[in-house]
Structure formats: C-alpha cells, structure tokens
Design a protein around this nucleic acid. Structure first.
Length: 261
DNA sequence: ATGGCTAGGCCCCCTAGA
C-alpha cells in the first residue's frame, strides 16, 4: 500500500497540480494539510472521479486536513484528544483503512508553525505536540500498524536544513520543538524517511522567495511509523519534482511510504 | 529585525504561513 502526505497550501489553488500528481504517483492513501476551506467547499468530485473516498476536517481560511483513500475510510476521527474549547484549529484527522493484508490506522497531521519564537504561538505549538505525543502513546496499545504523517513544522536535525544557521531563531528549529518530535519517536515510532535515507540534502519545503532555485530547503514533513508499521516498511521517498511540475506549486512537496499492507 | 512570495477574506490592506 502506498501512503502519501502533502501540505498543498490551499486545495482549491492546488486542484490541478494535485490531480496531475495523483494520476502519476498513484497513491492508495493521501493525507492532505492546509486545505484552507470548510468541509462543504472541499472539491470532492474530481477526487472521487479518480476513485478516492474523501474524509475532510476543514475550517475557514486556515489549516484544515483531509484523507483520500481508494479503499473505504472507517473509524474517521477528527481532532486531537485533550483540546479545550479555545482550540478550534483543524489540524488532525484519523481513519482506518483496510488493505489486502490487514488494516492500517492513518493520521493527517498539521502541527502548529509556532512563530514568532518566543511567544504564545510557540507555547501553543509545544502544548499541541505534547497532546500528539499522549495520543500517539495511546495508539501503540492496540499494536496496530499506525502511520502519523504530515507537516510537523519541525526540522529534526542540522542535516535537515540546507542552511541550518538561518533557522536558529525560528520555531521550527528550537531545541524544544526537536525534543518534542524525538519524544514521540522515543515511544517507539520510526521516522520512515530517515530509516531508509540517512544522508543530508533531502527537503520537503522551500519558501517562495527563490529557495527552490538555490535548493535552500528544509525537511519538515514527516512519516512516523508504529513498530507494526515499521516492520512492513518497503520504501519511502520525496516527490520533489512536484515543485517544478506546475506554474503555481505548493511550498511543500509530497512524501510517501510503501508498506506491506 | 525584516523582507522577499502566496493564499484567503471580504473588498484594496489585513492575517498567516515557515
């Protein structure tokens, strides 16, 4: 089963490139982030025409996550547990998908950016990541294949940035942010891309200010696998060509895993 | 410390992204 994640930076603005990529990459499941629309306005029809079921958890203007799947989506659950009424950001959507060899639980994750650092937005980022850690811990108890994938807004190590020094005052690169990600991994989750590609120079985001042309990127979109999913990992890749394939690309590119499920 | 660019909104300038 091929499972992908992509922060599209508005699903309406990215509709044509998204359809083109789906036809070419043929993923079975896709987690989308920053769809930037309410559920009612998500363009379901063109995705359904390609054979995908759609689960959507959106909001007006900002954030918003979705999961597309060729097989039916079951046990669809929006929102990360542990939030109070003040947290109305649409950043988490979970579902169960059945493959030929069993089930997989997949979450589409859009973690807070956290800038400017320091400040209340950074505090919110760390609190949200702690909620994610607690939920990730709970998910391990079922001993199922779990895939927690999306835009974590965290640069895990120096080698995940072309110019690490440029990020030292940024929320994405703070030790607290990196520790928060490592704490989730320490529960027993594997960074799928790192497990198969240990070297530097692999990025998932380039800003719109000429960074793509200079390959001044960062790796902030991650695929975390539970032990049962990690045992089934066959391949992982970054579709960086997507950045150059269209006139109006997202600032993120898709990341995918192939699992024996 | 900030701008560069992109997107959405409600509407010509703001917020937010990373």
């Amino acid at each position: 089963m091929k499972i992908a994640t992509w922060n599209v930076n508005s699903i309406k603005a990215r509709l044509e490139p998204a359809l083109a990529w789906l036809k070419q990459a043929q993923p079975d499941v896709v987690c989308l982030q920053e769809i930037k629309t309410v559920d009612e306005n998500f363009p379901r029809e063109p995705f359904e025409a390609l054979g995908y079921n759609c689960a959507v958890h959106g909001q007006k203007s900002y954030n918003g996550v979705a999961i597309l799947s060729k097989s039916p989506l079951e046990d669809v659950t929006p929102r990360l547990p542990g939030g109070d009424d003040s947290d109305d950001h649409a950043r988490y959507l979970e579902a169960v998908i059945t493959g030929k060899k069993g089930i997989v639980r997949v979450a589409s994750i859009y973690a807070p950016n956290g800038n400017p650092w320091p400040g209340p937005k950074f505090d919110y980022k760390l609190a949200w990541l702690e909620r994610l850690r607690l939920h990730a811990k709970k998910l391990l108890k079922a001993e199922e294949p779990v895939v927690l994938m999306g835009d974590y807004n965290i640069i895990p190590e120096d080698k995940d940035a072309a110019r690490p020094k440029a990020w030292v005052k940024d929320a994405l690169f703070q030790p607290e942010s990196r520790t928060a990600l490592r704490r989730i991994e320490n529960l027993g989750y594997t960074d799928a891309f790192r497990a198969l590609h240990p070297g530097p120079g692999h990025y998932t985001f380039w800003d719109y200010f000429g960074s793509w042309e200079r390959n001044n990127g960062i790796r902030i979109d991650h695929v975390l696998l539970s032990p049962q999913a990690g045992d089934r990992l066959q391949a992982c890749g970054i579709d960086s060509h997507v950045r150059g394939d269209s006139e109006k690309p997202s600032d993120h590119v898709p990341v995918w895993v192939e699992l024996k499920i």
